[in-house]
Design a protein around this nucleic acid. Sequence first.
DNA 1: GTCTATATGTTGATAGAC
DNA 2: GTCTATCAACATATAGAC
Lengths: 236, 236
Amino acid sequence: MPPRSPALRAVEPDASTGDTKARLLDAVVRLFAERGFHATSMRAITQLAGTSVSAANYHFGSKEELLRAALVRRTKPLNDARLEALAEAEAKGGTEGIRAIVRAYILPLLVAGSGIAEGAGSRRSLAVRLYVDPPEIVRGTQQEIFAPVNKRFNDALQRAAGDVDPKALDVALKLSLGVALHSIGGHLVWPTPEEDPSGSVKEKMIDGMVAFAAAGIIALLDLESAGETASGGSQK
Amino acid sequence: MPPRSPALRAVEPDASTGDTKARLLDAVVRLFAERGFHATSMRAITQLAGTSVSAANYHFGSKEELLRAALVRRTKPLNDARLEALAEAEAKGGTEGIRAIVRAYILPLLVAGSGIAEGAGSRRSLAVRLYVDPPEIVRGTQQEIFAPVNKRFNDALQRAAGDVDPKALDVALKLSLGVALHSIGGHLVWPTPEEDPSGSVKEKMIDGMVAFAAAGIIALLDLESAGETASGGSQK
DNA sequence: GTCTATATGTTGATAGAC
DNA sequence: GTCTATCAACATATAGAC
């Protein structure tokens, strides 16, 4: 079983027109994640992909569309992983269920594709860029990609938490996202694979983050249902 | 007592060479906060400030130095407010003390200068840019500006939390910063002054965020001291 | 101190050969 | 499909008049 032979590249199902498109998308992901939209030029992208600017424009039409294509391609597996983990988490109930849901929400960000799994500390995640870069198309794409998933998680939390103010719950979920994004944005020092061969340190950090976010959600919701008397949080 | 007459501008103590420098710094803050470094051109800045590119370069030398000057000017009052609030918070002890410290750390970000106080939802905070923009000078400046303050808060938390793993505490503080940054990065819907004239809704959101972050810190530290046996967390 | 004019390089996108 | 050559517009920074 050869680990990766050159021939394996031909198996890639993505290349509908050759693999130039795929190489471009890979290059875009890398550079956008590292530098952001405006700091990444078409020349840099196409040079990294081993092709020309005009080829990129032939395939994607514009720089913004190229980014867009990369984003949807890249976030699909992320959201799939989240939803899959959510299905398991929903079996449990109570605060343990909340913790499991939060874990399902956060963990794929950290390990699947765009997180710490693929590079040392300084490389930023594409997911972070999605929430940070200014161009309008990024905002729209972000909504298109994440809104349905966020709604699913909101509903799941609503069920697990009992009868709480939906607005407070929405805020709580967003704050827990902030925890995850900041931690993959290059501000936390993650151990290198050499320092942490078993991955136990990394695992523990992730456990800590999940505990942090879950406790935050629970505290925020409790505070809401304790302080609020008129808007529907205290009729348990 | 006239609220703000044009003559009041002359009182501004900043203008050492006229007020062109001050106007430039204001313009820089606005545009950098909204668009980030690479998306903000010297032309846009100087146009907004009502002066020329060469005047800006005369005063600051380069675009990066202009940003740098704006950052230090703008974060000084922020950090002063944080440290002042910290002094009060340190009087208290226990988990209530932790909550007060977190509040001192987060709240000035939300109200003083660079947060929600000065614009509607879509405008990003300069503080967010500091943690998000790629140029190397921003990273260095960020360290220079925030490292001492962070150390002070780390120490305070260390005292308030008892004997916990310093590394875990550092992570916990960073995660709570992530909560605050994400919430002022344009992803939370803050009420407009018209919708919320008394400010009570905003206040409640801030209370929720502080509760979220404090609970997160406490949970993360408890988890560490419960699961760890060898590295110095469990010898109480 | 502030301006106009300019130097020098880079950007995103396109035209047209192959 | 992919390239080279080119476009107009933009970038940062500087020179020199006032």
